[in-house]
Amino acid sequence: MPDLAIIIPSVLNGLTTGALYALIALGLTLIYGVLHIINFAHGALLMVGLYAVWFLNTRLGIDPYLALLIVPPAMFALGYGLQRGIIGRSSHGRDENILLVTLGLSIVIENLALFVFRSDTRIIDTPYSFETVEFLGAFLPLPKVIAFFGAVVTAAALWLLMARTDLGRAIRALAKERKGAQLVGIDADHVFAMSFGLGIACLGVAACLLLPSYYVTPQVGHGFVLIAFTIVVLGGMGSFVGAFLGGLIIGVVEALGGLFLGESLGQIGIFIIFILVLMFRPQGLLGHKV
């Protein structure tokens, strides 16, 4: 039985990872909440963001945190275009079709990346990659601590945007009542694409925060897709607070699972939570109704 000296750092590490998971899941839950679609290409788009950050850093020498000014807007544009050009046009009134189209997109994106970048694992070097911060007797990598606070700030900003701006009101109106929103003059296609773009922009932020302490391969998104789905389902589809709490919980579960069961089996804990929640409480911990 490991003692507290091992468990506390493990929990703290889990929380920092969990905040990033939460950020990725926020994008997913935003898209689900408004468009009622499950974006299967979420992991693949995160991978695109990571490669963008990697490219900016290794080829143009741009610091990953400076890339926060470039990558999220670019990802936003990509998301907007995808929704307007492809995803929005292919539903034919059935949710399953969207699932299939986003699955197809993820396969295309991933394998194009495999084609262009090969399956090599790539990392970036920053002067602060190996700096640590001491907290409660645990030494946490500085990039992870920055990522934790970055994720919290982004989530807060997103919440403010949804609560206080016209765009946020339009998004919420569309999510609640599509016909009514259109009747009062909301351009549904545009707002849907804005929501999708915002969700993908979250991935851009996550990519900038993630890469200093992580790596990128064409398949890197895989690991994140099911985790993000689990978080969204755990927190309640479409619930912001739920997604954030869900992210932290999953981060800690993964860290502790890895500690007690080993790296490979530790991940099973996540899937088991996922399956159990879907079976017994599909509305999630904080959600109201499916």
Partner: peptide, 22 residues
């Protein structure tokens, strides 16, 4: 023989089929 290229095609086919020939 290029790694991944047939899967790119599979994915693209999936998107095209669902969009135009559901």
């Amino acid at each position: 023989e290029v790694p991944g290229i047939s899967l790119v095609l599979y994915g693209a086919l999936l998107v095209v089929m669902v969009m135009f020939l559901p």
